[in-house]
Simulated assay, not measured.
Amino acid sequence: MTALGLSPPVTLLNVPNAITGVRTAGAVGFATAALTRRSGHLLVAAYLIYWVGDILDGVAARALGQETRAGAVFDIVADRACTSACAAGLVVLRPSTAVPMAVFLVQFMVIDQLLSLMFLRWPLLSPNYFARVDRRIYRWNWSPPAKALNTAAVAILSIWAPVAVAVAFALGVTAVKVVSLISAAGLPASARP
C-alpha cells in the first residue's frame, strides 16, 4: 500500500502474460477461421495453440519467477475466451457435440470461473497453490490430471464417444465443480495458507 492507501501498480508486461496474449489471439483467431471456413484442421490448430500455450504460460511464470495474481486472473479469463471460441467451432463442425458442449460451457464459463477466482480470498498467487487452503479441492480442480480432464476430456469425448457418455461426463465434472465451489465458499477467508 502507498501513502494514499492505494495498491502498487500491477505488473502486466512480462513473458507469461505475453504468452497468454499470443496464445489467446492465436487460438481465437484459428477457431474463428475454423468457424468461417468450416475447417477441422483449423479447429485442431486452435485447440493445440490454446492447450500448448496454456501449459507454456504457466511453465514460464514459474521458471522465470514471474507469477502474479493479475497474471493468474488474466490466464483464467483468457482460458474462457479460447474455450468458447473453440467450442463454437466444434459445435458448428459437429452438431452432435452441441449438448455436451453446452453443459461444459455453462460449467466452465460460470461455475469453474467463480471457483477459479476463489483463490483471491487468500494470499495465493493462483489456483495452482490452492492445496495450501484445501488439498481435496485442489486435487479435484487444479492438479495436472484434473486440469487435463476438466478442459480436454469433454471435447474429446464429444467427438469420439456416444453423446450420452459425453453428456454424463460433462454433468459429472459439473457436479464436482459445484461441490468444490460450495466447499471453497464455505472456507474461512482468514485461514492462512
Rank of each mutant, 00 (worst) to 15 (best):
A166Y: 00
P162I: 02
T24V: 08
A148L: 15
D75Q: 11
S126T: 05
A164Y: 11
A170P: 04
V73N: 01
I55G: 14
R132Y: 06
G172I: 08
R135W: 09
R139A: 14
F169V: 08
S116T: 14
L125G: 15
A131Y: 10
R132H: 12
R38K: 09
I111T: 06
T24H: 07
F169M: 10
A168G: 11
A25E: 03
G40I: 09
V77G: 02
F130I: 00
T20Y: 01
R23H: 13
V106T: 08
N150Y: 05
F74N: 04
A155F: 15
M1H: 14
V73G: 03
N141H: 00
I182M: 05
A98R: 10
P188R: 08
F119A: 04
T83K: 01
D79F: 09
A98T: 10
T151I: 12
A46T: 02
A87L: 13
P16Q: 11
A27F: 07
A88M: 14
A155S: 13
R80L: 05
G186F: 12
F30H: 00
P16N: 06
W51P: 01
D75V: 08
L43E: 06
L117I: 15
F30V: 04
N17F: 06
A78Q: 02
G65Q: 03
T97V: 13
D54G: 15
S7D: 11
P95N: 02
G71N: 08
A98V: 09
I111R: 06
I182E: 12
D54T: 15
T20E: 02
N14K: 02
I159L: 13
